[in-house]
């Protein structure tokens, strides 16, 4: 029987604030899982600490709620041991770009075949609204006593320079579009990042749903709000690298789009490069049986407990009498 989106729900009460962007992200992820018809047991969702981190508990799949900023190392460890797992890492902006930014950058070096979703709302919600690493300089969201003295990190640009091979941005209230982004990311062969712009109705009173949809910018002709968001794919933008000669120009144009903010904010796929070997490919080159017998699938002992490893050759190198 075909799996439905509702099959990926758990009975755990969803305790995000009313109107939170996380609901949209959760729905988009569940829709993706249903669309890809992924069995529950094949999926492992990892999260860090913060509002986003509750998400695995609401998804009927293996769910590992880890430590602040450490989503990626846990996720990589599991994928490395069993590459058959469909590994999705979920992180927050404070979580993944503040305390965990070292892992963000270093994961880029590995091009491991996992999908990483960053919930980006500009604030630390669960600790009552402090500035996160993506909040722009000078902004003063609701609970900040003073305007933000730090400038914001640009996660798309950082991902580009770190080596991510799929980089996209979605919007929490455009669930169908976000679902497409997540699906593309999961289908991508290699490391995929999807940054999700997500209003925090409780603590971010600047980058609100109304702000994103441009309710302060009425088109006099139509009388309708002019959204600040636009879709890259609707402008004819082509993110795909088809050969090494295209790599630099695609990085440059993705970087230019990544710099856009304010009145025109792009969502969609910024960059995709499937021409590079994944981390799994690199290991297989060194360990040819890795694909068939990854660490978690190796039989380490016989039924009587006797180890399967044979140390004779290694001991031979040490034998002296």
């Amino acid at each position: 029987m075909a799996l439905k989106m509702t099959d990926y729900r758990t009975k755990v009460f969803v305790d995000w604030c009313p109107g939170c962007g996380d609901y949209g992200i959760l729905a988009a992820l569940q829709m993706t899982l249903a669309e890809l018809q992924l069995p529950h047991y094949k999926v492992a969702v990892f999260s860090g600490i913060g509002c986003h981190a509750k998400m695995p508990h609401f998804i009927n799949a293996y769910g590992i709620h880890t430590l602040h900023g450490r989503t990626l190392p846990f996720a990589i460890g599991a994928k490395l041991a069993n590459p058959e797992l469909e590994v999705i890492a979920v992180g927050g902006d404070g979580d993944g770009l503040g305390i965990g930014v070292g892992h963000f950058v270093n994961t880029g070096r590995r091009n491991i075949d996992i999908t990483y979703l960053i919930h980006d709302n500009g604030v630390y919600g669960l600790t009552k609204g402090q500035a996160s690493p993506t909040l722009k300089l000078g902004l003063q969201t609701k609970s900040l006593p003073k305007p933000n003295i730090n400038d914001g990190i640009n996660p798309i640009a950082l991902a580009l320079t770190s080596g991510y091979t799929f980089i996209a941005r979605g919007y929490a209230y455009d669930v169908r579009h976000l679902k497409e982004m997540i699906k593309k990311g999961m289908q991508h062969r290699g490391l995929a990042l999807i940054v999700v712009l997500q209003p925090c109705p409780t603590y971010n009173d600047i980058n609100t749903k109304e702000w994103y949809s441009g309710e302060d910018r009425m088109d006099p002709a139509t009388g309708k709000a002019v959204s600040r968001l636009y879709k890259l794919e609707e402008t004819g933008y082509d993110p795909v690298v088809r050969g090494p000669e295209e790599e630099m120009s695609k990085i440059v144009s993705a970087f230019e789009r990544a710099r856009e903010w304010g009145d025109r904010i792009p969502i969609g796929v910024f960059y995709q490069n499937e021409t590079l070997p994944t981390y799994e490919d690199r290991i297989s080159k060194r360990i040819p049986h890795y694909g068939q017998k990854p660490p978690a699938k190796q039989k380490i002992c016989k039924d009587d407990g006797a180890p399967t490893a044979n140390l004779a050759a290694l001991l031979e190198e040490l034998i002296v009498t």
Binding site: R70, P73, F74
Partner: peptide, 22 residues
């Protein structure tokens, strides 16, 4: 070889959860 020891222990836990002796 990880980026730091924080990654090392947590990656090890991730691999152990997947069933490998780590």
């Amino acid at each position: 070889q990880t980026e730091d020891e924080i990654a090392a222990i947590n990656m090890a836990s991730g691999a152990a959860l997947a069933g490998a002796r780590t």
